[in-house]
């Protein structure tokens, strides 16, 4: 069976700065990957390349047997399978929660309004905020907004979910409610790549840990080995810094 995501020798430059260096990464269907590393290590850039929010300069990205290139058709085909959750939520502030959720299904998937609303309500139940459906995003707490953002992605029924530091912009007391939703998804078998510094979450939900620094993958392994016996010095230093709190 084909891999969910195959990345081969991926390189990405921002001007003369190399953000990603020869990245190789394969993700199986149903696998949960957690990427961590210091800021500026290229974690976000990597997952932004997968759904073509950034164009890579060389190398190959294959999602579900579709090769990603500059071709609009490949970008659209992959975009349809990959959902993304941002650090800053990026909800549409001029639309109600329900409209945020039904926009994609009605305009892109061609669902009728009632079908889309039914699906949206089902998913809002799942992220445990059905009562917020008719509110504006600005009336919600950060944790609720991020759950709406996750629900918005799920309404497109993606096969793969990417999370770009989903809890970094949240107040501490709201982190758990968002992570619970992500763990729930993970237990359901969703293929996902999560960029996060929440190591407790990583231990709970990850199948594989990826440690990046300066645009390279330094270390990769099962969470148990990764946390208890990191092989590289850079990884050890990073884990020490982050786990001390």
């Amino acid at each position: 069976m084909a891999k969910a995501i195959e990345i081969k020798r991926l390189n990405k430059w921002f001007g003369s700065y190399q953000a990603l260096k020869d990245i190789d990464l394969n993700v199986s269907h149903g696998e949960r990957i957690v990427i961590c590393g210091p800021s500026g290590s290229g974690k976000s850039t990597l997952i932004r390349c997968i759904n073509s929010l950034e164009h890579h300069d060389s190398g190959e990205i294959t999602v579900d047997d579709i090769e990603l290139n500059q071709n609009k058709a490949s970008i659209a085909a992959i975009g349809a399978e990959v959902g993304m959750v941002f650090q800053q939520f990026n909800l549409f502030p001029h639309l109600s929660v329900l409209q945020n959720l039904t926009l994609g299904p009605t305009k892109v998937r061609g669902l009728s309004r009632s079908e889309a609303e039914e699906r949206a309500m089902r998913i809002l139940e799942r992220v445990q905020i059905p009562e917020q459906a008719y509110k504006q995003p600005s009336e919600l707490s950060g944790g609720q907004q991020q759950r709406v953002a996750i629900a918005r992605s799920l309404c497109m029924e993606p096969k793969i979910m990417l999370f770009d530091e989903p809890t970094s912009a949240l107040d501490p007391e709201m982190i758990a409610e968002v992570l619970d939703v992500i763990v729930d998804l993970a237990e359901d078998g969703m293929t996902m790549i999560v960029v996060t510094h929440e190591m407790g979450f990583a231990r709970r939900a990850a199948d594989r840990m990826v440690f990046m620094d300066k645009g390279e993958i330094i270390e990769m392994g099962a969470p148990k080995d990764f946390f208890e016996a990191p092989k590289t010095k850079r990884c050890k230093t990073f884990l020490n810094q982050i786990l001390q709190h």
């Binding site: 975009g79 305009k107 892109v108 918005r152 309404c155």
Partner: peptide, 8 residues
């Protein structure tokens, strides 16, 4: 970016 990720 959010619009792009839901396929608009």
């Amino acid at each position: 970016e959010a619009a792009k990720t839901i396929g608009l």
